[in-house]
Design a protein around this nucleic acid. Structure first.
Lengths: 113, 113
DNA sequence: CTTTCATATGAATAACTGTTCATATGATAA
DNA sequence: TTATCATATGAACAGTTATTCATATGAAAG
């Protein structure tokens, strides 16, 4: 590698480095996408597009056992992607905000091309 | 559960079921997000926002060894998120399309709230 | 041809993750 | 209280994955 290109090489790295967000932010970002990166969770989120649902309804819809759904709902709740409300014995889950829809739809758009 | 609410319960499941995309599509969607769900890959993609870069530059920028970057680039290339061109011994990687930026920015927007 | 540089690849390993099973909690009804 | 229904949780297991190390490929230069 010539001295000139080596210079450019290092300059590029420095430049790009200056434009990169904090490591923490990039970590959080990866963590967010990681949540979406599981088909069960995507299905749950997609189901909640339509309306709030209780755990057993989601389990029935996805044809999976209640425990598996409950575990995934906990993860979704911890990351603030869903919320829930109690009504007697039943607990209804719902999407926290419309960002979830936007992100999933954006992904869908990418798939369909 | 009363007969009425049981009826509504089943009707809801049927309704939501009708609105759900194919399993295959949801699987692909999860797979797409799964790619973004790793901090090394996010960092690589973010770096390529600015300009194309060769493998060793990315490795240097992220302070990781060349092999690790190479492995991740292969995954990104397989999922068509990045492309590359050869120039002598050097191989330059770049983002495949602007969808990648859009998806990542959407995620960023969600984080910053 | 041989050396060198940039990149790719395979095997190995350690860490992580999703599901299941069994059981616990918590609310309602009897 | 006891029984029952809806949900949550912990432990265990199987499958997956990111990184490292060692080595291979492939291109250019000498």
């Amino acid at each position: 590698m010539s001295e000139l290109s080596e210079h450019n090489h290092d300059r590029l790295i420095e430049e790009v480095s200056g434009e990169m967000p904090d490591d923490d932010m990039l970590y959080d970002l990866a963590e967010l996408f990681h949540i979406f990166g599981d088909s069960t969770r995507i299905k749950i989120l997609y189901a909640l597009f339509e309306s709030e649902m209780c755990v057993c309804a989601i389990a029935q819809l996805l044809n999976m056992n209640q425990s598996a759904i409950s575990h995934q709902l906990r993860i979704l709740k911890q990351s603030k992607l869903v919320g829930c409300r109690r009504e007697g014995k039943t607990i209804y889950y719902h999407l926290s905000d419309d960002h979830v829809k936007t992100i999933i739809n954006q992904g869908m758009q990418h798939i369909n091309e």
